[in-house]
Nucleic acid binder design. Structure first.
Lengths: 199, 199
DNA sequence: GGGTTTCTCTACCATTTGGTAGAGAACTGT
DNA sequence: ACAGTTCTCTACCAAATGGTAGAGAAACCC
């Protein structure tokens, strides 16, 4: 049953980018096939239907993001504020390198929830852990008190908003090159520090 | 040349919601027509093409958002931090009432820029003014120093991220009801206060 | 070498897409 | 009452959509 060609992986990768950048419904199988350089029916050999392809793309993306975040958590420093900074920067890294990844997350709301279960079940525990950790740090007085789940949601919304809307951000007079993304990321970290440093 | 029926306005309104919630390419003229309760060709009577409809939707949305923001600026208090809070809350209001409005903004990046000129040219000056104002307040020492354009972009990304991704936010364990949105908004305002209060 | 599995292809299909042509109501000003 | 405009409709079209059927290479195991 071992795969002998890389076609499947290539399809997954290109589909991830196209879906993330333009949306599931807006990208046709023909377009993905042309992008990969293969016949549409080759896609349908590897993935029985477009819905299945979407599901696999989400599953692969969830796995990839989870690995990055887990690694960042494992190697992060102990000081709560440094730790937050490290993890936020880690989340930003794939988003900067490959905005389509977070563009996918944005697309979830447009799907029947069953298709996004793979991603949701992968991301939820990480977030739950983050919220729990933050609450305990707050109780211990090492972070200023607040509602951890709201803070996490806020960071999440910011990161996805930044990562997926470079064009729209240009509409507010901001330049979406790499250095611009870095400045945004650093400003976000400063915000978090200012808001969470214990008084 | 006066309009005798409200059909055109109804089409614009419904199309705004559908486009904002599901994306331009994902929504067909047939679907909009069915939603409005009219034949597809009635749409094409009022708007010569789908592209034209999109353009008109964006123009109307830009006008609507600009009015809200301008009114908020005009009646906002003088203290810089209070002023920021008032404007942010004003921007949030239509987003909360009608998330599709900001969903539209998110769609801009997927359009040929000519189609979004109407929105861009309407929003840009407002943002430019905000940045200029913030810089002068920083110079006067009434706000902590920073890069105003980055801060504005950050707020913008947060608001659109929150307003357009209730489903995705649920994936990170956050509840997207009205009170949840209010809590997020209030937390954002707290962040801004903490980050911008002069030391 | 022969049979099986892996992999990609051409040919085709029903449905949906954005859009055209043009008929016919219904309201308007005179 | 009548001419012109405003407004919505049915009927149709070429192209693109997701998907099926099945043929033909190429690599694998024996």
């Amino acid at each position: 049953m071992a795969r002998r060609s890389g076609t499947r992986d290539t399809i997954l990768e290109r589909a991830t980018d196209l879906f993330g950048l333009r949306g599931f419904e807006a990208v046709s199988l023909d377009q993905i096939a042309a992008d990969v350089g293969v016949a549409k029916q080759t896609l349908l050999y590897w993935f029985p239907s477009k819905d299945d392809l979407i599901e696999q793309v989400l599953a692969a993306t969830a796995a990839e993001l989870a690995v990055v975040v887990e690694a960042a958590i494992r190697s992060a420093p102990d000081d709560p504020l440094d730790r937050i900074e490290a993890v936020v920067k880690a989340v930003f890294r794939p988003a900067v390198r490959r905005p389509a990844l977070l563009g996918l997350v944005r697309e979830i709301g447009r799907l029947p929830s069953s298709s996004s279960d793979a991603l949701t079940t992968r991301v939820q525990p990480l977030v739950a852990r983050a919220v729990q950790w933050m609450r305990s740090e707050m109780d211990a007085g090492r972070l200023r008190s607040g509602d951890p789940s709201v803070i996490v949601a806020l960071v999440y919304a910011t990161v996805t908003g930044i990562a997926t809307e470079p064009e729209a951000l240009r509409a507010v007079g901001w330049n979406a090159d790499i250095s611009g993304l870095r400045r945004l990321r650093d400003e976000l970290v400063l915000f978090l520090r200012a808001a969470l440093t214990p008084r």
